[in-house]
Each structure stands twice: as structure tokens, then as C-alpha cells.
Design a protein around this nucleic acid. Structure first.
Lengths: 218, 218
DNA sequence: TTTTTTTTCATGGTTTTCCGGGATATATAT
DNA sequence: ATATATATCCCGGAAAACCATGAAAAAAAA
């Protein structure tokens, strides 16, 4: 294909994942695994010193850090970098959000060798690659009438998302009001809107639906 | 060392992890990676059909399943099997619990090649291997002051799981009582136990933690 | 068998959530 | 410019959740 193999870096808090990808690519002539990181700081340092590789495989669930935010930041500084998100779970909202923030591909961590290679190839050609199980989830999430419950993503206002985030973090209505400098009544209104919009009967359902659909990008 | 290389199996819901270990062991003459599983059922099936390998590397956080319970069960049926637990985070209670249930070693997923080999060697000699960072955590945990982080699976009774399942399905306490033919008071007691065991402040936290840890087998 | 855990139910109280209204001001889009 | 959506605030009452404690029978584990 090309004379120079394309370079691949990996950022994942489980070092084994980076190693595994490196091992997979040892057999490949078109792609070369160059470096693996478990934290974002050393990765950024390396980017500044050596410049960007062709590909970066990026874990969404870093230890406390937000992979999607990092993706956005990286794309701003290195637009030519192909970023492929890695994750253990597939959640519609997270996938859409990742793609919106500059990711070129999406892979589940239980992928096969061939799928990694195929992903690199497609992304290298400027296409967007979605791991097969993820495409399925995305399809189901946009077709209503599946699995008993309507599965389109409700659009929430910025305020509602803030409130929802705090609800999921176990804040009571009073505490949310204090945290956002709102009246308790206002927070209660947002709660009611959230219950309606997500089709939940109570807080338990609200939290479950929120997490199942990945409505909060963190 | 030995004429016959020791066989190694891996159970981890991220297939990449199993692959990585397999790749690491390709360079070793004393150890042979034989099989990788992402679910416990096929593993058990293979054990019945082919008998046990020398080593099993076992992930603690399977998708909804409890790796420690599985460890215990496996040791009962195949006492000669060396089980080494794999995990992303190190948590004192989990480590102690694993060792009590028959595990011979403990490895973090960000291990180096040499550490895996050293672990296999020590465990093969009948010793107990603890990954260096884990030993440190164990030491620190003897000194009170720092409370443990997530990643440990609380042990829930059968009834508690039933109640928890219905809570997540948006049943109210009254509805749960009706569904399980219990008094409302009893259900409230179970609720309280669940809040305590999962360390949640309210239902929102209960549901979030339940889903995050995959406590319910769906 | 003894001990521990689980399951069950209770009392009595406080706090929070949920419901069904209504109201005003400001963006935002068509 | 005129709808539409969003954000803010308010009320009262009912329902549900949460807290603290106790206690006894059944089941499981040691």
C-alpha cells in the first residue's frame, strides 16, 4: 500500500489494552504501533514534542477524565489526527456526541483483530467507522416501537441537563436549588419536565433511562 | 523448566484483554495461552468438556456477573486450578475476599509483561502473588482514614436483589410489596439495607450504582 | 450444634418527591 | 413579528421515600 506505515498511538487507562493493540499491529505492514499511554498528560507532552501520529485510539472512560472532551481538544490542535474512540459499553448519546466532537470511528473493546484493521483502513480513507454492534444500537435507538419502550433521545435544555446531572449525583431538590442558585420551586418544575420528557414514573426510572441512553456525556 | 508448557485460560468481558495475554505468552515456552472467554457459561462448558487448565485469569467485574463468586465455585469443582484475579482498580476488601475464596494471585490490568510471567511462576510454585501496587494498597488499608473507592461488588441477598430489580423498574414500595406478597414495612427494610450496602443516599444513587456495577443479571 | 445472616414485620416520625394547577420574562426560530 | 420554547417563580396537598429502632422466626453457614 504505502511505503511508510501509518503510526498508531493508544490512550487507555488499562495498559493491557494498549499492549494488545500493539501486539495485533505487529503483524501488519501498513500500520505501526508506536506508543501507549495510560494518562492524558504524557500523551499531550508527547504530541507537543514529536507531533501527532496518524491515528489515536482513545478510551472514553479514563480514570476520572472525560475522553470526549479530550477528543474535542485534540482535534482543535491537530485536525489531521484520526481519533478512534474505544469503549466497553455502547450508548447512543455518547456515540453521537463523540462523532460530533471529531471522532472518526468507534470500537468496542471486545473487537476482533480484523475489525481493528478494517476500522483503521476506513478511517484512513476519510470514512467513519462504527463497530457493528454499535451500528445496531444506533439503529434501534432511532426506530421507535422497538423493545416496548420508545427509544428516541429526548432533547433537554441546558438547565434541565444541569439538574439531571445533579439528580444522578444524588442531590436532593433543596441541594440542587442551593447549588444552582435557583428556587426549590424552579428545580421542581425542571424535575417534572424531566420525568415527562424521559417518560419516567419516578427518580428511579429517570436515572435508569438517563444512564441507559447515556444522556449525560460523562 | 518442564517438558509440557502450563496451559492458561482467560475470562474477561473485554476480549482484548484475553488477546493481550495470549500475545504476551506467545513468546514464552513454559506457558501456553489456550483459550479466552468473555462469558462464564462457555468457560464452564469448556471446563466440563476438556477439563481444567493449569491457570485461569479471571476478571472480577464481568458484565453483571460476580467474578469472586465464580472463583469460589470453580475452586470447589477444580481445586487444582490456579486462579488469578484481574481487575482495573485495587480495593482492599475485594482482594481479601478473593484470596479467601480461593484466588492464588492478583493482577492489575495495567501490568507489565514481566509481572504476568512472575505471577504465573510464583503461583505455580504454590505461592500467592500480589501485584506490587496492590500490596501497597493493602498496607495502606490497615491504616484507617481513607475510605475505599468503587469497584467492589456488595453482596446482596436473594430478596434484596428482587427488591432492587423492581426498584430499578420504577415500582414504588407499595407496588413491590404487592408484587412480592410482603408487607410495606418489610420492603422498606430491604430498601434501607440496599441504601446502606451500596452506599447510596437515595434512590437516584441506588439506581446509578446498580447500573454502573451491573448488579442485576438481566 | 451454635452462630450468623436473612427475612419478616412493626412503630412513629421527618423529609422529599410527585401532581396539578398558574404566571411572567426572555430567547429563538420561522 | 409572531409563535414556540425555555427559564424562572409560586401554591397546596397527597404520596412516597427516608430515618431510627426493635424484634422474632427461618435459613444458611461455621
Amino acid at each position: 500500500m504505502t511505503a511508510q506505515p501509518k503510526t498508531v498511538w493508544v490512550l487507555d487507562d488499562h495498559f493491557l489494552i494498549a499492549e494488545a493493540i500493539g501486539k495485533i499491529l505487529t503483524d501488519e505492514v501498513d500500520y505501526q504501533y508506536q506508543a501507549g499511554f495510560t494518562q492524558s498528560a504524557p500523551l499531550l507532552e508527547a504530541l507537543r514534542l514529536q507531533g501527532a501520529p496518524d491515528y489515536l485510539l482513545l478510551d472514553i472512560n479514563l480514570n476520572g477524565e472525560d475522553g470526549i472532551a479530550l477528543c474535542k481538544q485534540l482535534k482543535k490542535n491537530w485536525p489531521a489526527l484520526h481519533i478512534i474512540m474505544l469503549t466497553g459499553l455502547s450508548q447512543p448519546a455518547i456515540i453521537k456526541n463523540s462523532l460530533k466532537n471529531g471522532a472518526s470511528g468507534f470500537l468496542l473493546k471486545n473487537m476482533q483483530h480484523a475489525e481493528l484493521i478494517e476500522c483503521l483502513k476506513q478511517v484512513g480513507d476519510g470514512e467513519t467507522y462504527l463497530h457493528a454492534p454499535i451500528e445496531k444500537v444506533l439503529l434501534e435507538s432511532s426506530i421507535p416501537g422497538k423493545s416496548g419502550r420508545s427509544d428516541f433521545l429526548p432533547k433537554l435544555s441546558r438547565r434541565e441537563k444541569e439538574v439531571l446531572d445533579l439528580i444522578v449525583k444524588e442531590y436532593t431538590t433543596q441541594e440542587i436549588a442551593d447549588a444552582l442558585f435557583l428556587s426549590v420551586n424552579t428545580v421542581e418544575t425542571h424535575r417534572a419536565s424531566l420525568l415527562t420528557k424521559l417518560g419516567a414514573r419516578n427518580i428511579a426510572g429517570l436515572v435508569r433511562i438517563t444512564l441507559e441512553k447515556g444522556l449525560l456525556d460523562k
